[in-house]
Design a protein around this nucleic acid. Sequence first.
DNA 1: AGGACATGCAGAAGT
DNA 2: CTTCTGCATGTCCTC
Length: 780
Amino acid sequence: MKTMHGDGTEQNHQENEEKYDEDDRRRRRDMYEQINPSNNYENTMDWEDEVIGAEDLLHVDDTLMSYGDFPPLPDFPCISSPSSSSKSCYSSSAPPPTSSVSQRQHHGSVTCRNNSFPSSSATSSASSSASWAVGKSDHKEHSAVDEKTKNQEYHENRYGNLLSTTDSMEIQQDELNRLESGDCMDVMEGFGEIGLFDTDDIWDPSCLFPYEEEEEGFHQPKEDHKCLVDRETVDNDNDGDQEKNNKPSEDLALVFLEWLKSNKETISAEDLRSIKLKRSTIECAAKRLGGGKEGMKQLLKLILEWVQNNHLQKKRLKEGQASSFPSYSSQQQHQNCNPNSHEFSSFTPPESNPACFVPTANPWNVSRNPPPPVVPPSTYVSDPMTSGLAVYPPPPPPPMHGFINGDPSVLVPHFNQSPYPSSEEYMFDASSHLQNWAHHQPPPPTHHFSLSSHPYGASYHHQDPHAHHLQQPPPPPPLSRSFLNYHQNQYQSCHQMFQGSNTTTSDGSLIRLGSSATKEARKKRMARQRKIFSHHQRHAQNNHQTTDLQQTRVSNDTTTTHHQTLNNSANWVFWSPSPPPPITVCGSLSPMMMVSEGRPLTVDPPLQPTQSPPNYHKHINMENRRQGCKPAEKNLKFLLQKVLKQSDVGNLGRIVLPKKEAETYLPELEARDGISIAMEDIGTSRVWNMRYRFWPNNKSRMYLLENTGDFVRSNGLQEGDFIVIYSDIKCGKFMIRGVKVRQPGSKSEAKKSAKANRNLHANSPMCEGPSASMIKQAVA
DNA sequence: AGGACATGCAGAAGT
DNA sequence: CTTCTGCATGTCCTC
């Protein structure tokens, strides 16, 4: 405040800070350009456009979508084009939620800012980072103004666009409310309600969930659905006006009738009945397709075409099974059971790395006090609501209100607890398809469901299940309801985050249904998962290259080992499907940065913490070129490392981060409460929900990573060890690795580590890193 | 001299 | 009483 009124000295200070800000921005941008040479300003804008397109389609609920695999963007703190983001976000799509437009614009500006962060998705990121602070504690944030005292000068100078946390909170709440309202419906029913056609005489409610009943022993009480629909109806009462505007004409009925006539023999009412789509989705999609009657018509055509294609696909599959031809699903199942096999690789879409669609990628998940990390294998996200926070993942996108770490409320991205989805699970896990689709697309991932440009072509090609079926060498699993439901599933995933559901992804795809699953069905499912999982564990032990490393790793933390095993068993899911997961660390700092699966490497302490990341980045790239390293499936970008001090590994559960690197590579912090960042442990794929924040310190800041206690403990990190933070270029996730520094005199440990690393690198010869040689030296 | 950061410590919150 | 949270201060390092 002093600065605001400022005497001469203060003015000078301010000027200096402004200059510093400018330099800082330039520096950050340079850094990002170095790291992501492909990302230029235009890309950024294109990307934003795509995001906006998808978001429009998905409507507001989808701000919660996980855009985890968005590529990191260059840092342009102030390109914030509220105009582009906010306008696009809310102009063409359904009416903005309760929040005012101005709020949205705020939102938008922040979004843009956050987009520059790794792992950020456009909108969600914004909501996350900003809302997080708000969600944390109302009163606190409401007094945010007070809080901006001396820190404000710093803050305001550095960040022109301040987000009103209050605003974002309202937005969050609004979104929450909407999610809770269960805004989904049978798509055909939806059309029916909208007036497309009369559903009563066609649809038999008993056909609603034939698959669950059939394959999962799962029963969805009709009442549930009814409730859903009723609720929907109630919810939609408010949309009455809009509905009127979209009242379809007879054209639609004609289109539908014609289609019915031509497909009556192959497609039953049940098939149609089984398709569900959110009303808001329908409306938004229709809008995107031109709006009004025409849009609705286009959408209907689109859906019908999909139904047709999908149904035929399904039939073909059934026939194939009947005639003993391997079906995709069985194949898939088999493949899934042999994650390490080449067969798996060859049949798996090149980039079907589920991790890349993990909501957990959302670094913006927030957790104020994440419960102890006792978790099922694989990534989990705790419920933001439980921590009273609201954000997203992506502030960055997959910003949500999720939390990771320890919180049993799990949002498991794609697969279930079991790394081996059963065939039917796979078949019905729309998110899997989404992932696959997503990975066949160039970034931005939001192309997933961009119906925007052309109903049947262009931008639709990525989403077009039909196209997908036809183009993918092995036909993908029947999408069944996925085309429409995957959309819903995404909501569901997000919903899960909000609700803190304990269900995993396997249930995730059935999340709305899962709540009413019978105990029996659940038992069966769990038994199956246990079975599969134990099988996988055995398999992983035999085949997984990291096993050796795990076994030799010195750890006095048995739980860690356990988790490790569990997590590694799931690692195949997250890492490149290619046989030896060649993980290239593109921006790694030091030798020990060589990323491998398994736990913290034990290495000599050759740290040069101040070594310039960009230089190292360049070095690594050259190394890659020299060694013929193709860009790995999972490129990790070194962000920063920190040698742990006593205070970092103490029971405070916080690690002071180097200021320069933090400001350069981590999301800019709007409020001192910071943001929640989901950090995936590279060794275990476990996701830790940490908080990245700062403390005012004189006229500067101290950057901290909080909630690190469990991570430090589980990695057995001590003073002198260090952590390294990366961002996954593909998924935009933050990744963290604890590296133990070899204790002098512990030769056997060094040998073990060396052996482990030799094995490791033997499996990935292309990427032999310095760590192996360093360890060899140590051994010598 | 000024900045970065390690850590001490006071007050708040939780048990 | 313990733990958590957040700030302030002392020390070290860089310019």
